[in-house]
């Protein structure tokens, strides 16, 4: 039963930050600099999500995630479909394990 309360609590605190901006965004007129900031957010988010988290793919062995990441960069650089980038990186890590 306590797990159910935990799930509901987690659901509420996760949903609020998601929906509040959708409601209040209409009430703002964004200045140019704020617009640039918001437009840059996706690229910054990708950077922050990739590193240093990728080093923890295998705990205690950061090189595993690093090599998987390098494989992904190379495959993506040559314009491969993102699905093959993902499969290639999984395969690389699998052989390193």
């Amino acid at each position: 039963m306590i797990i159910l309360y935990i799930i509901i609590g987690m659901a509420v605190v996760t949903a609020l930050p998601r929906i509040i901006p959708a409601i209040i965004v209409d009430k703002f007129m964004f200045r140019d600099w704020l617009n640039r900031w918001l437009k840059a957010i996706p690229y910054a988010a990708l950077g922050a999500l990739i590193f240093p988290g990728i080093l923890t793919v295998k705990s205690g062995e950061p090189h595993v995630g690093l090599i998987g990441g390098i494989v992904a960069v190379i495959l993506a650089y040559f314009g491969l479909n993102i699905m093959f980038v993902v499969i290639g990186a999984i395969a690389a890590v699998y052989f390193l394990m």
Partner: peptide, 23 residues
């Protein structure tokens, strides 16, 4: 071994999204 290797999947996807934009 397989479930551990899949931990790279989401990172690879982020990289696959970032690299074309950066190019």
């Amino acid at each position: 071994q397989l479930s551990q290797s899949m931990g790279i999947a989401l990172y690879a996807m982020f990289i696959g999204l970032l690299v074309p934009a950066v190019k």
